[in-house]
C-alpha cells in the first residue's frame, strides 16, 4: 500500500478518487453518529426538561452520581450480566452442537440445514411475541406440551415468576442466535480438510479427541468471531425482552436497554436516561474495539 502513495500523480489521483467515492458514506455516518452521540453526552450533563425542547440546567456529573448510587441501576447491571452470560454461553454451545450435528450425513440433512434459516431470518420482536405466547400460562403450547408429557400437572404461568421469566427470555433469544452461530460454524466446518480427520483416526483418536484436537482448533477463528458477535448482541438486546416481559415481573428482566427506554420515554427523565445511554454506549464501544482487535488479529494471523 505504502508504495502506491509515493507513485506520483497517478497514485494521488487514485487516492483522490477513493476519497470522493467514500465521501457521501463518511459524511452520512458523521452526521448520523457523531452529532447524536455528542448531543447525548451533552444531555447527560443537564437536567433536561421532559419535552426536550432545551438542554435545561447544567448539572455536571450529577446524573452519573445518581446512577452509580442507585440500586435500580446496579440491579439492572446484574440482570444484564446474567442475561448476557446465559445468552452468550448457550448461543455459542448450541450453535456449535447444531453445526457438528448438521455436518454429519443423514437422511434429510438438506432440509434440516434449511431449518436453521427460520429463527435467524425472523425479526427479534417477532421471536419475543412468538415465545411469549408459546410460554403463556393460559393458551401456551409449552404448557400443553409439558402437561401432555406428564412433566407438570397443570398450566404454569412461567412469565410471572422472576426466575423462569428471565430464563425464558434467554431461551427465546438463544433460539434465534444459536441458529445464526450454527450457520457460521457449519460453514467453517465445511472448510475442514477431510485428511485431518483421517490422520487423527489412523492415530486411533476417538470422537472426543478428534473434536478437541482437530475440529475445535480449526474452528477457533470462527468461534472467536461468533462469541464476540454474541456478546455484542447480548448488550444490545431490547426487542425480545420488550415483547415478552417489558422488563418484568418487577425488575426481573430489566436489562439496561429496557431501563434506558423507560427513563427516556416512559418517565421522560432525558438527562438521566442519556447518562445511562452513555454508560451503555461506552461499554459497547469497548466491546467494539475488542471486536476490531480480534477480527484483525485473526486476519493478520492468516
Amino acid at each position: 500500500m505504502s508504495s502506491s502513495f509515493s507513485n506520483g500523480s497517478l497514485a494521488r489521483a487514485d487516492a483522490w478518487f477513493g476519497m470522493k467515492m467514500s465521501a457521501v458514506a463518511a459524511i452520512m455516518m458523521a452526521v448520523l453518529l457523531i452529532i447524536p452521540s455528542a448531543l447525548t453526552i451533552i444531555y447527560s450533563l443537564h437536567n433536561v426538561p421532559a419535552n426536550g425542547s432545551s438542554f435545561g440546567e447544567f448539572v455536571g456529573f450529577r446524573n452519573y452520581e445518581i446512577i452509580f448510587t442507585s440500586n435500580v441501576f446496579w440491579r439492572s447491571v446484574w440482570v444484564t450480566v446474567v442475561f448476557s452470560v446465559g445468552f452468550v454461553v448457550l448461543s455459542t454451545l448450541f450453535g456449535l452442537a447444531m453445526a457438528l450435528l448438521l455436518n454429519q450425513e443423514f437422511l434429510g440433512r438438506g432440509l434440516a440445514r434449511g431449518l436453521l434459516i427460520i429463527p435467524w431470518a425472523t425479526p427479534w420482536l417477532v421471536i419475543g411475541i412468538l415465545w411469549k405466547w408459546y410460554a403463556d400460562g393460559s393458551v401456551g403450547g409449552l404448557n400443553a406440551l409439558l402437561v401432555g408429557l406428564g412433566i407438570t400437572g397443570e398450566y404454569q404461568n412461567f412469565l410471572s415468576d422472576p426466575n423462569s421469566a428471565l430464563l425464558l427470555a434467554i431461551t427465546a433469544a438463544v433460539w434465534r442466535q444459536a441458529s445464526f452461530a450454527g450457520i457460521l460454524l457449519l460453514a467453517g466446518l465445511q472448510t475442514l480438510p477431510g485428511e485431518l480427520y483421517e490422520a487423527a483416526e489412523l492415530d486411533g483418536a476417538n470422537w472426543w479427541q478428534r473434536l478437541n484436537n482437530v475440529t475445535i482448533p480449526w474452528l477457533r477463528p470462527v468461534l472467536v468471531t461468533v462469541t464476540v458477535l454474541n456478546i455484542i448482541y447480548a448488550f444490545l438486546q431490547f426487542d425480545v425482552i420488550f415483547a415478552m416481559t417489558q422488563g418484568g415481573p418487577g425488575d426481573a428482566t430489566q436489562v439496561l436497554s429496557i431501563l434506558i427506554y423507560r427513563q427516556l420515554f416512559v418517565v421522560t427523565q432525558i438527562g438521566l436516561g442519556s447518562a445511562l445511554a452513555v454508560v451503555l454506549g461506552l461499554a459497547a464501544l469497548i466491546g467494539g474495539l475488542v471486536t476490531v482487535k480480534v477480527l484483525y488479529r485473526g486476519k493478520a494471523a492468516n
Binding site: S4, T40, L280, G287, G288
Partner: peptide, 24 residues
Amino acid sequence: YPFPGSRRFELAVIATRVVPAIAI
C-alpha cells in the same frame, strides 16, 4: 483506491456496528 485515513475510516465503520441504537 485506499487514501490517507481510509484504514481508520474502515475501523470506525466496524466499531460503529456495536454502538447501541438506543444510546443515540
